[in-house]
Amino acid sequence: MSIHLFNKRTALMLTLAATLTACGSDNDDNMTEPPPPQPEPMEYSYDITVVNLTHEQPLSPITAVLHADGKMWDIGMSSSIALEKLAEGGDNTDFISQESVIANASAQGPLMPGLSETLTITTTDELATHLTMVSMLVNTNDAFSGLTNLELSTLDVDATMSWHLAVYDAGTEANTEAMGTIPGPADGGTGYSMIRDDVDRVSMHSGVVSQDDGLMSSVLTQAHRFDNPSIKLTITRTK
């Protein structure tokens, strides 16, 4: 019984195939067999807008990455080297090249205080379920702000969510505020250094002290001080 059915089906399929081939040949000798129709891959796209809320802390190029479930930093955990490079020097090259990163978007240059900027990040990868946004406050030793492991499934198309983000300390460089240690315009010093001379864990930042507030070896002034939040982040899913 089953063999009979099989033969019948096979015969039908062969007939259909022959008919299709014949049709193709009649119209165009060069026409190749069309590939089987595949479902159009679903595209996911997000607009990420950042406002720099600080008084005089330019933000290193705004960075956004899509990835599977997993925090890229956490309070009490040691910073990855990729995060250390970003938090100490504003360099996101390693951060966007991490193995876990599926898609990334990076601004061309720093975002000055009082200004805002929008990045677009797009993917068709179903595994890109979470988003991380990060940036360094460049007139510091190793302060950064951002949001990590935001689950995107809660965001419908055209939905918008907004956050006010606090400042973290990467814990990889002592907050000396000393000349030569701060990469931003307040100093023009060294960014990343592989030496870890701090607590080696991420925490909330306690703010900068500055020379005006009594740290005489600081290159920072009262103008560089900050309080939370430092970033207004708005994410809109567009596709």
Binding site: N52, L53, T54, H55, E56, P113, G114, L115, D212, D213, T221, Q222, A223, H224, R225, F226, D227, N228, P229, S230
Partner: peptide, 18 residues
């Protein structure tokens, strides 16, 4: 006087009193 200038002329998060 702490400073003569204000570099960020948009509404922003106050850096606090010195």
């Amino acid at each position: 006087g702490v400073t003569m200038s204000e570099t960020n002329m948009a509404v922003h998060v106050h850096r606090g009193n010195l």
